[in-house]
Every structure is written in C-alpha cells, then in structure tokens.
Design a protein around this nucleic acid. Structure first.
Lengths: 194, 194
DNA sequence: ATTGATAGATGCAGGATGTATGAAAGATGG
DNA sequence: CCATCTTTCATACATCCTGCATCTATCAAT
C-alpha cells in the first residue's frame, strides 16, 4: 500500500460524500433550488471542504453529471448484454433505445441530465461529456448499421445526435404515453432502412 | 376611446419595457446570470415596478418565453407563405422544418427557448406553452400527412414531439454542420412515407 | 521532532431575491 | 370640483447565498 494512503482516503471520502449528497439534492429539487449549505449539511462536512475540492457550485454539479452519465452508460450496457442473439444492426439500435428509456425512468436522473445540465453547464460542455459516454456507443451503432448497408448512407454523428435528442424527449414523455413514443421511435428508425 | 386609457397605457408600457429588456439580457447572458437590478436598469424602471407586474423573476422569464414563442411561430408561418404550390404533406413537413431551423439561427433565441426554458420553467410548463404555438402546427402537419395516407399511421402527438425534439437539437448544431443535419432530418421524415 | 503541505473549518464581504411600507398618479362618485 | 379609493410605482429592509480569505488541524517527509 502506498504510504500516503490515509490522506488519499480522506480526500476521496469527502469528495464522494459531497458528490453523493449533491446528486440526491440536485435530482430532487434541481440545481437552482439547491443551496451549498444544504449539500454540505447532507454530506456531513462544511462549505470549506466543498470549496477546497471544487472551484464552485457549478464544478460540483459537473462532477455529479459526469458520474451520472457514467453509471447510465454502464446500466445500459449491462442491460444490452442479455439475449443479443443475432440482432442485426437496426434491431440493435432499437434495443439500445429501449435500454436508454428503461434507464431513464428515474425522474431525478432525467432532471439532472436532460433538464438542468444543458442550462447549467452549457450545451457545448454537455455535448463533450455525452460524446465520451452514451453518444459514443450510439455513433458506433449507426456506424456499423451504415457500413453493413442496413440503413441509408448518412453522416453518422448528426444522425446519432438527432436520435439521441429523440430518445431524450421520449424519456420525458408522460408514463402512460410512453408506449406510443416507443412505437413512433421504432417507425422512425425502421424508416432509415434502405 | 375608453376613459381609462391612460392608466392602461402606462401599465402596458412598463410591462413591455420590462419584457423587452429582460428578453435582451436573458438571451445574452442566460437566466441565472441576469439579475433583476440589471433588468430594471435596462428597462428604465425600478424593481418595485417589476414585482408589481410579475410575481417573481421566473414569472417575468415566462412572459419572455411566451412572447418569443409567439414571434417564432409567426416568423415561421410567414416564411412558409411564399411559394407553396402544391407541396404535398411530406414536403410541407420538410419545409416547416427548414423554416424552423432558419428562424432558430438566433443564438439568444436558442438559449431562451431550448436551453434555459426547460430548466427554469420545467418541462411541463414548456410543453404547455409549446402546445399552443409551434407544436400545434406541427401536430396539424403530421395529422394531415397521416390522413392523406402519405406517411405511416402513427400517433400524431408523440410523432410531433419527437420531430420537434430533433428540430431543436438540429438547431443547436455547429453552424458548419447544419447542412448535414438538414440532410439527416429530410431522410428521417422521408422514411416515414408508406 | 521539526518542517512543510494538504484537508478542512470559520468568518466576512458583496450581491441578489422577495416583501413590506410609503408616495404619487389616475379613476370614481357626489 | 373635491374627496376618496384604487392602481402604479419607488424605497427600505430582512434574509439568504455565493465565493474568498484566513485560520486550524492533520498528515507526510526528512
């Protein structure tokens, strides 16, 4: 073990506590309505610790979003593991969308990633984060579908962005209409077939 | 003329000044970074007037968004007037999308309607506003296309929502990639044909 | 053990929001 | 035409939040 283990532990421990508490509150009440005194109280530390680890409230929010994106990508990936017997590229796209919608059934997660993040961090920053997680696999998905000749030859990145936007909005749909949204999404993707 | 004209005028005058000044600042710097002292200074009134006419800063923002949505819908409608010689329902959808993208070339407008509004007012409130403006005509558009048998038979409202989401995202694309986005949007809509 | 660095706590200054109170202009009724 | 009431707006205040600066304690290294 590294001899400086204890200090490192302490550091990451408070960092984690802060991010965890912030994630809960941001998800519940939104970014603007959550104050840093609230967060540090929930985390069991003081504001001094917060501003020692993060430049400002926005940086803490960015850390929360980053982590949430990571666990989201992981969740979807794990869900996609099961039963992928010869899916075909188009079917894979549809299944990926289903997985996304399932993972997005958490109200707080939607607020965090779709509603608040663009306003707080800016669209560019959110795109940059997304490009490293969910969007990346989506780009790969449409890429293979195009290479396989399964769908029309279109620029992959814009297509991925537009599909991603669609998935985002579908995830925000009222719970009782979500099946209709699923149906329309399937139709839109199938319409891309050659 | 109504005898109580003068008071009514005064009322609407300050209201307009407030909304106009707020629209400029919100569009430039975003909702959170704009303070009410700034707004009233630009409008030439005091904070007392602001809080007499609007419940809070959020209500003023809602008024700005409402108005911006209205002028946006008007702009698109006017642009769609020219040269509609037998377009056909699908072509009309594509043209409507083009009009939307053109009208959305304003950076401040994008920030106002797409980035900030959902975070500040909540997704539900934004949907309610949108349902009375842009989304309404889009629903009609897909409705007639479906009735005409030009595109697949899908639930119109979800379809309109998903198309709207794609248009939103396309409007946020980097200026030099917007042509690619246009191409993909066309392909997605054409893919809806029976 | 001493010295230096890092984590964390406390206190402070500036500014913002929303409200309560007060004044001025306009409408209303005799 | 005057008095009164209502509406519009201005000023002052209380509360809260953010970010920074300063101070303390804990830990690592020699």
């Amino acid at each position: 073990m590294d001899v400086r283990r204890r200090q490192e532990d302490r550091r990451t421990a408070t960092r984690r506590a802060l991010v965890a508490a912030a994630r809960t509150l941001f998800a519940q009440k939104g970014y603007a309505a959550t104050s840093t005194p609230e967060i540090v109280k929930a985390a069991g530390v003081t504001r001094g610790a917060l501003y020692h680890h993060f430049a400002d409230k926005q940086a803490l929010f960015a850390a929360v979003v980053e982590e949430e994106h990571a666990v989201l990508a992981l969740t979807i990936h794990q869900a996609a593991e099961g039963g992928e017997d010869e899916p075909g590229p188009v079917k894979a796209l549809i299944r990926g969308g289903e997985g996304f919608l399932a993972a997005m059934q958490d109200e707080g997660r939607r607020r965090l990633l779709i509603v608040d993040a663009p306003a707080v961090l800016g669209r560019a920053a959110v795109d940059e984060i997304d490009a490293r997680h969910g969007l990346r696999t989506l780009v790969e998905g449409v890429g293979t579908a195009i290479e396989a000749g399964a769908i029309k030859d279109l620029p992959p990145l814009p297509l991925a962005h537009l599909l991603s936007a669609m998935f985002d909005r579908a995830s925000l749909a009222p719970a009782d209409e979500i099946n209709d949204y699923r149906k329309v999404m399937k139709a839109l993707i199938r319409g891309l077939k050659k």
